[in-house]
Amino acid sequence: MSLAFPSPDHLPCPDCGASLPAAGDAGHVCDDERRIDYRLVELQPGIERFDLDLAVWLETPGGRFARFIAERDR
């Protein structure tokens, strides 16, 4: 008897991350809330990087000027 590298019985849906039988689940319909949550987790590193980049930029001359204008126009 030959052995094969094991495969899991379940795998996450590529669109919403829900656990589905690896053999196929034709009836699966992604839940909108789960799909948004899943997408947010995927985007989280980018969101964190944006926040850091923004904080750095706000301390540059251009960023400080933008803050000045924003404060003035508030």
């Binding site: 899991p8 379940h10 996450p12 991350g17 995927e42």
Partner: peptide, 9 residues
């Protein structure tokens, strides 16, 4: 965290 749901036995 990956946001993925998993099923294990």
């Amino acid at each position: 965290p990956t946001g993925k749901e998993a099923t294990v036995t």
